[in-house]
């Protein structure tokens, strides 16, 4: 039998246009479009690209949930056996869209998915655990190499086979630990590793410790008097009633709250959603966690130009690193668009 595959691509690879067409809404075209040619060739007779779903990167980025649902509906109408998205190379919004489509397909349709990206594409960290991501170069020059790898992995999944190690499949690791039997017993491997370590020879740990990457510090504020300062908190400060229903721990969202004209976070108006500490003090006076009152004073005194009109708040307690990173990126984007110069981030 021939497996049915739907291919997801963006407006650019569909030949619709560049940034000016990024608002393209999801649409379905029968058969192969753009890079689908190469993919279809790599599938041979074993699988057929029955349709291509296209969506503008801008539309997808601005309407993530809706766009994903629309794309999934179009895909479902083709009754495919698997979905392939991209490759997205180093295009951030495209990569994020490919990942989100694969995740939505997995959750809603239960189908195997394959996409492809450059390792530094932000879509990788967000969706690596949800889908197989074939490693590509940073630009479309790598298409020729990526496509056969994507096709062979998709075929493996369609046949119900378990993919091999990331190094064998050409994929980026999903971050799951899988058991295997090695050639030598653990004690022998450990003794060999020790000998190598002592000799300064290369060795490979079998369990890499979780790592914390570092960001070089941004340059200092040159002119505080003209600066706009924004407040961000992981202490869960929210308007009374917690309108966005931010969870007390393992938060899945953050809130954006207008404080233009607010001089003081009073007990009547604000409290904490955080479940990680005794809330009595923050509920009594939320300035104890988010010092709006004194910042307002200093703004009036001209210590700095402006306290940003919105503050951003989530609960830091138990929130997965990848999600917190996404909150950070989204908040940074908003702050940049608003012309903010520096940030005070408060935590409990």
């Amino acid at each position: 039998m021939t497996y049915r595959v739907v291919h997801y691509i963006n407006q650019f690879f569909a030949g619709i246009g560049g940034e000016e067409e990024a608002g393209q809404r999801p649409l379905l075209k029968e058969g192969v479009v753009g890079p689908g040619q190469a993919l279809a060739a790599a599938f041979g007779d074993e699988a057929q690209i029955v349709a291509t779903v296209i969506c503008g990167d801008g539309y997808f980025a601005e309407n993530m949930d809706r766009a994903a649902a629309e794309v999934v509906d179009l895909i479902a109408s083709c009754r495919p056996d698997a979905v392939v998205a991209g490759p997205a190379f180093n295009a951030g919004r495209y990569g994020t869209a490919c990942g989100a489509v694969c995740q939505a397909v997995k959750e809603n349709l239960g189908l195997p998915t394959v996409t492809a990206m450059y390792p530094e594409n932000p879509g990788v960290d967000l969706y690596r655990s949800e889908t197989y991501i074939v490693e590509t170069t940073d630009s479309a020059r790598g298409l020729r190499k990526a496509v056969p790898t994507m096709a062979s992995l998709a075929l493996k999944l369609l046949r119900g086979e378990t993919p091999g190690l990331p190094s064998e499949e050409g994929t980026l690791p999903q971050g799951r630990r899988r058991n295997l039997f090695r050639d030598a017993c653990g004690a022998e491997r450990a003794a060999d590793m020790l000998v190598r370590k002592l000799r300064g020879e290369p060795f490979e740990t079998e369990y890499p410790m979780p790592v914390f990457d570092r960001v070089p510090p941004a340059g200092a504020l040159k002119n505080l008097k003209e600066a706009t300062i924004a407040l961000v908190t992981s202490g869960g400060i929210v308007p009374k009633g917690n309108p966005d229903h931010i969870e007390a721990s393992s938060a899945s969202r953050y809130g954006e709250y207008d404080i233009s004209g607010v001089d003081d976070l009073t007990a009547a108006g604000y409290g904490t959603a955080h479940g990680g500490y005794d809330p009595t003090y923050a509920d009594g006076d939320a300035d104890r966690v988010l010092p709006v009152d004194v910042l307002r004073e200093m703004e009036r005194e001209g210590r700095f130009a402006k306290l940003h009109d919105f503050f951003y708040s989530t609960v830091g307690n138990g929130t997965p690193v990848a999600l917190a990173a996404r909150f950070g990126r989204e908040i940074a984007e908003k702050l940049r668009n608003a012309g903010v110069d520096a940030v005070i981030l408060t935590s409990t």
């Binding site: 993919p163 190690l165 990331p166 690791p173 999903q174 971050g175 799951r176 630990r177 899988r178 058991n179 295997l180 039997f181 090695r182 050639d183 030598a184 017993c185 653990g186 004690a187 022998e188 491997r189 450990a190 079998e206 369990y207 890499p208």
Partner: peptide, 11 residues
């Protein structure tokens, strides 16, 4: 104590 050959890798 490393008696067996079982191990794990990241996939």
């Amino acid at each position: 104590l490393g008696l067996g050959r079982l191990s794990a890798v990241t996939v």
